[in-house]
Design a protein around this nucleic acid. Structure first.
Length: 708
DNA sequence: CAGTGAGCGAGCTTCCGCTTGACTT
């Protein structure tokens, strides 16, 4: 019997199904060793030696792996092919070795026979067991069999890269958080990822505050061609785009009036009619990031919800792994999908060659495939699940996006009509300006991959606004070309109407979960497994608030942000993680020692730490005023403060006046149960919002959903 | 189901990344 060890229990189940009886497959369920969280667990004085311990919650898992390893002939450690996976592999090797070392202690005659690395043959050998490391990037029988043919030893350099990553994050988090407890408020936290996340939100808010709206004008002209006698199709609308060969920028009413009067006094000639064919390629298959963005935009789901639903689909065997930064697709899946497309839609929907997609992210680890249905032929089934309905919605979204990514482009006919002004003879003297106006539009000639979004029954679920290409903002006015009359070069047109429109520039948009994840991914900050938890953390810490789906910073968030950015600018630079990744790559390649990497970071960091600890004053957090006067001392203002148990009301004359009161976040509705109390918004210890009655504990009504 | 803030000082809070459950007030 051979033992294979993977990370995910679902993966273990899948593997044992198609590998047969010669194999036992066990899962680690993530990391099995880590730094204990109640202390720093890093010996800064002695080369940053980390104190990795077995994770308490995994003791049962570890025991199972150890027991199974005793019966095995070969142990293949098949944890994910990335940095974290290599560290888990190392830890698995250690706990297996421990088991056998224990035996050698008990029974003097059984000891480790050999522990060495050969080039091809692998391996650490204990008595009659061979332990080796294998990797595969897709869950197919082929991939696993290939992997088993190519065993290797655990890559120590890659493990060291993980150690460096882990130690760095621990040092940043566990050195800066206590500093915040001292200088700002108890219970706060800082970290390489979460602090940058808050920073993005704070800086966006400041951009919005600093934003000054500017007036501008867009001018449209309705024209008529005499060539087409057919009444309904002989008019069209063009937009002013250039004045004297320069981009038309009209900033106020005076200028707009001048242009309008010029345009009214002009004659119009067709300068050019350009027709061309435009191809629109399908979108790449989903990754965690793009899937979360799409589900947020289309269904309005939080990333946490999307990930939970995806987890259910994954466990049900309906989709591939959902925490991934990769767009790779197994060749087998591509082949089957191509067969499906040809059969279902016909050859014109099938490109000559399969389409491959590549991640643009430099920090991508690509341990898994893209998110795709495990079988394009399989019908959706997820009965008796709490996510029955949502599961279907998400599955169909994933299914379409994936099948589409292997289909041909959709083809459009694009028509662009350019019109120039000439001046009526009698006014040539007055009007010196030359105006260029344009209209362009596209009409679908061949639907290609868009057939999935137009005709297929699945469409009720995903009328997909994410699929709109961002072609609109090219400065020219788009129209449906079916509505464009057939005009020709040098033709004279009749002016019908000039339409000036006053507009104002809009402030930048606040982040949503989706746009935040997009930026984090672009910056290489955080990983697919941490996007949702990070967004959760910064809300639980009360650094940011989500209102109508948009994030804004709280006064605590702003205070902490300014303190950290002010004192530790380099750690929370947007480029810091990218720099760290570069260093980690060097460690992984054996070009640099991990201890050196950490030392180079820690030396100046520690100095700064001591400096700030000594010099920085305690930061005052601005309390929000309610506008009410204190009923006790009649002098102070009532403000909203945050204590250990959440928000409460107090007098701002504290400590002279000790008035306090409960803070009730009323939504303006009576309790549906007792009809006497008010419905208020409360938060669980974990930070989740729920609705309750203000008369609690007299009335015990509570609900996760907002009462109607 | 009272308590919260400032300060006193005991004992506590805290990171990121890998993986799932247990199941919320």
């Amino acid at each position: 019997m051979d033992l294979i060890i993977v990370e995910s229990p679902t993966k273990a189940r899948t593997l044992s199904r198609f590998l047969g009886s010669g194999y036992v497959v066990e899962a680690t369920t993530g990391h099995i060793k880590d730094l204990p969280k109640n202390k720093l667990s890093i010996d800064v004085e002695h080369d940053f030696k980390p104190d990795y311990r077995v994770v308490e919650k995994r003791s049962e898992t570890i025991r199972k792996i150890q027991t199974a390893s005793k019966k095995a002939k070969n142990v293949f450690i098949a944890t994910d092919p990335d940095r974290e996976g290599e560290a888990i592999a190392q830890h698995v090797a250690e706990i297996i070795k421990d088991k056998h070392s224990l035996r050698s202690k008990d029974q003097k005659d059984t000891k480790i026979l050999r522990e060495k690395t050969d080039k091809n043959l692998a391996v650490s050998q204990y008595r009659n067991i061979v332990v080796s490391r294998i990797v595969f990037h897709e869950i197919t029988k082929n991939a696993v069999e290939e992997a088993i043919k190519n065993p290797r030893d655990v890559d120590k350099n890659l493990v060291h890269a993980q150690t460096a990553r882990r130690v760095l994050d621990r040092l940043v988090g566990y050195k800066l958080s206590p500093l915040l407890w001292k200088k700002v408020r108890r219970g706060l936290s800082a970290g390489r990822v979460q602090t940058v996340c808050v920073r993005l939100i704070v800086e966006k808010e400041r951009e919005i505050e600093a934003f000054k709206s500017k007036e501008y004008w867009e001018i449209f002209v309705n024209l008529q061609t005499s060539k087409t006698p057919n009444e309904q199709k002989n008019t069209f609308e063009v937009q002013l785009i250039k004045i004297n060969d320069k981009k038309a920028e009209i900033q106020n009413k005076e200028n707009a009036d001048k242009v309008v009067s010029d345009l009214k006094a002009s004659e119009y000639t067709v300068l050019d009619v350009v027709k061309r064919e435009v191809n629109k390629s399908p979108y790449p298959p989903f990754t965690t990031s793009t899937m979360s963005q799409a589900a947020a935009r289309i269904f309005g789901w939080s990333s946490k919800k999307t990930m939970s639903v995806a987890q259910a689909l994954y466990e049900e065997g309906l989709i591939t792994y959902h925490r991934t930064d990769s767009m790779n697709i197994s060749l087998e899946a591509i082949r089957k999908t191509r067969d499906f497309i040809k059969k279902q839609y016909g050859g014109e929907y099938l490109p000559e060659k399969p389409k491959f997609y590549k991640t643009s992210s430099k920090v991508a680890q690509e341990a898994h495939e893209a998110i795709r249905p495990t079988s394009v032929n399989s019908k959706y089934e997820l009965q008796n699940s709490r996510y029955e309905r949502e599961g279907e919605m998400l599955y169909k979204l994933i299914w379409k996006r994936f099948v589409a990514c292997q289909m041909t482009a959709s083809v459009y006919d694009e028509t662009t009509i350019d019109v120039v002004t000439e001046f009526k003879k009698e006014r040539t003297e007055e009007i010196k300006n030359k105006y260029l106006l344009r209209v362009s539009g596209q009409i679908m000639k061949f639907d290609g991959w868009k057939i999935l979004y137009v005709k297929v029954d699945y469409d009720k679920v995903a009328v997909d606004s994410s699929l709109r290409h961002p072609e609109r903002s090219k400065g020219s006015f788009d129209a449906d070309p079916a509505q464009l009359p057939d005009v020709s070069k040098d033709e004279t047109l009749k002016l019908l109407k000039v339409i000036p429109l006053q507009k104002f520039t809009q402030p930048p948009a606040r982040y949503t979960e989706a746009s935040l994840i997009k930026v984090l991914e672009k910056l290489g900050i955080g990983r697919p497994s941490t996007y949702a938890p990070t967004i959760n953390t910064i809300q639980i810490r009360n650094y940011v608030e989500k209102n109508e789906g948009k994030f804004s910073p709280t006064s605590v968030g702003i205070a902490v942000n300014d303190f950290l950015i002010g004192n530790f600018p380099d750690v929370f630079e947007y480029q810091f993680t990218a720099g760290m990744e570069e260093g980690l790559d060097k460690v992984a390649n054996g070009e640099e020692k991990w201890v050196e990497l950490i030392r180079d970071f820690y030396k100046p960091f520690e100095k700064k730490l001591l400096d700030v600890e000594k010099k920085a004053k305690r930061v005052a957090i601005e309390a929000e005023k309610t506008g009410e006067k204190c009923p006790e001392c009649k002098k102070g203002d009532i403000v909203i403060r945050t204590g250990r148990f959440g928000k409460f009301l107090s007098c701002d004359k504290f400590p002279e006046c000790k008035y306090t009161a409960k803070y009730l976040d009323k939504i303006g509705k009576k309790c549906p149960d007792c009809k006497k109390g008010e419905v208020i918004v409360k938060k669980t210890k974990k930070g989740r919002k729920f609705y309750g009655c203000s008369r609690y504990p007299k009335c015990k009504w509570a609900s996760w959903r907002k009462p109607s």
